[in-house]
Amino acid sequence: MSAILVEHIAKHFGTVKALDDISFSVDKGELFGFIGPDGAGKTTLFRILTTLIIPDQGKATVNGLDVVKDYRKIRQDIGYMPGRFSLYSDLSVEENLNFYATVFGTTVAGNYDLIRDIYVQIEPFKKRKAGKLSGGMKQKLALCCALIHKPSVLVLDEPTTGVDAVSRLEFWEMLKRLKESGITIVVATPYMDEAGLCDRIALIQDGNIMAISTPSEVIKKYPNSLYSVKSDDIFSLLNDLRKFPDVHTVFAFGQAAHVSFKPGQSAGSSLQDYLQAKGHSGIIISPVQANIEDCFMELMIK
């Protein structure tokens, strides 16, 4: 049985279509990522899964329980970390944790095993008010509070947004360890680089799921030939590349430009000549393996 099963879910807000006929399933113990830009519908989907809003149509179950009919049972069994920090900023770290433990009818000591690794990092600040913690600490505390009742499904809405790179890595390490203890984790993120850390990912855009697969599978399905092109003047490089015949897409990617060609076509040596003729210096052209972001861009133009 799947931990989460979603069939033809749709949700409108006025005239805005937030989710448009979405279906997917998440297996038990899986780390499942939703990758998509802001406004793609990730938060709406998560709010439906956590029984906070009711879908307009379709059916969704968590551990076989219907999100509309059995919402009360689901709430016992699900941990949710909203995208916005939602703990009491005027209560201390300890008080927040105790409060959430008691409302789930448990104690911090009772489920300490699960949160120990995370909690020890914020324990030195346990008397500090939650509002006075740094961004990364806040996330750790929020994760502790979401885990304190030993949920079987953990739903995290953009947990690493606004967190520094080191803390982000740490956070994903924690998620991996939680996954090992058998918890199903669903996580949303706008960061493409985090996608590779998930077991499976769903690329979501404008309320539609464009692809669901393992990260490597998504990459394998990338149809075009892709090159990384560098030169000293990245801005005019992008403009010139777009004018090159047969080119399919050009995107800036860090210090380089990712240029793709439709299947069967390739840059060959003519690209080098073309750029030289345009007066570029320091040109490096190398074929590269597509990453999730390239795949996402490709799916977006379709």
Binding site: T50, T51, L52, R72, R75, Q76, I78, Y80, P82, R84, S86, L87, Y100, V103, F104, G105, C145
Partner: peptide
């Protein structure tokens, strides 16, 4: 209230 609403 978001966090409270997902509790029992």
């Amino acid at each position: 209230i978001e966090q409270i609403n997902v509790t029992p």
